[in-house]
Computed example of a mutant assay.
Amino acid sequence: MNLIWQAYLQNCRAIIRDGRVVSYGNAPAELANTRAASTGSATVLSDLSHFGLIQFSGGDAQSFLQGQLSCDVRQVSSSAALYGSYCNPKGRMLASFLIWRDRDGDDGNFVMQLPSALLAAIQKRLSMYVLRAKVNLFDSSGMWVRMGLAGSGAGPLVQQVTGGIPDSHLGVIHGEHASVIRLAQDRFELIVAPEHASSIAERLSRDAMPVGAPCWDWLEIKAGIPLITPATQEQFVPQMANLDAIGGISFQKGCYPGQEIVSRTQYLGKIKRRMYLANIKPTGPEIPIEAGDELFSADMGEQSSGMVVNAAASPDGGYDVLAVVQISSVGAGKIYWKSLNGPALEIMPLPYKVSQ
């Protein structure tokens, strides 16, 4: 987290732990307002410094990334972002990310956003494959402040700050002091230079309630956007986490690590697990539900039938989760958290279609 920006957040009463804004002192109210924002009756503002940025530049940046990532990097431009994944040779995801080009995108500059906890290892691994390619990659997290804006007033506020607004899903525009990515109809990410961040945040917070990162986590879960973390690395092929449904896999591009497995899974119809949106209400003492928690079902006996990908406290009680689960188990009956005696998952509809 940029130190000047951190000082500003602390001055705004932000509670920061491990580079992540936990809350502004009233987490229940922040979550309630985030729920209202999801239905279009409020607007919230979240710091996104818990995500890191890897910058790629050089004449071979596009071709290098095209040979490493599951998405079609040729579709990433200064006006369009993409979701994607980076896999090991067995097709298991090491990271999921959002990638875009900066305002100098025509010169080959790409920006990959992923959890800060994964950044160093992913940067090091990608660096090993640069070889003679004209590519420079470095951690640019401190060069930019990221803010998430969601709710009924998000669009007009973006218009005021940047002078424009992206028309399409994952569209990007670059204003004088901020770039913006449209993540959904009423949800945006702003990328701002540190010297302008506090003034822009002051303007936004007049009409948007500042909320902690857990609230943004909840919005991402409700949107069905998976985030690979250290607890879930190398657990899923991209289709299991619905990357194909959100544009994070290209089946027409050339080779990349794990491509053969990913393609075979797709064309031979061997997708046995898919990601579902669900709510879990633990019973008894409050025990947090976390990424990496195993799930069980009667048809699988003592063998795990799934895993929690992401979890966040729900404004309706318990936790809302994204969970990769055996498709047959979902059809056969209840899925349970941690054991067959644990609380059952209440499956909810995702905001997009997924082929079974």
Rank of each mutant, 00 (worst) to 15 (best):
F236E: 05
G19H: 09
W337D: 08
A7V: 00
F51S: 00
G58S: 11
M143I: 08
N109D: 10
V44M: 02
K353A: 15
L94C: 06
L48Q: 13
Q66P: 00
M275C: 09
P238G: 06
G301R: 01
S63R: 14
S328C: 06
K124F: 10
C87Q: 03
Q259K: 03
A80F: 12
A61H: 08
L149W: 01
P257D: 04
I271Q: 07
G91A: 09
A14N: 07
I228H: 06
V161Q: 05
D18Q: 14
A29T: 09
Y24H: 05
T34V: 07
P226I: 10
P315E: 08
L9S: 07
V354A: 09
I261L: 10
G258T: 05
D299M: 09
L98C: 06
L204P: 03
L126T: 11
F97M: 13
K272A: 09
S38C: 05
P210L: 00
W218T: 07
E290D: 11
G301W: 04
A298E: 15
A344M: 11
P315W: 05
V237C: 13
R35L: 13
S339I: 04
A213N: 11
G333S: 11
L243N: 02
L157M: 14
P288Y: 00
A178Q: 06
F97Y: 15
G25P: 05
F64R: 03
P115Q: 06
I122H: 00
G142W: 00
S96A: 13
S297W: 01
L65R: 03
A344V: 09
Y267H: 14
L219R: 07
I4P: 03
A42R: 09
R132Q: 13
V22L: 12
L149M: 09
I165R: 13
L157N: 11
L170R: 12
Q10K: 15
V321Y: 01
I249W: 06
V158L: 02
M307A: 07
W144I: 15
C215E: 04
A29Q: 15
W337G: 10
L53I: 14
P315A: 13
S85R: 00
K353Q: 15
Q160S: 15
A61L: 08
K90A: 14
G153T: 05
L295P: 02
Q159W: 06
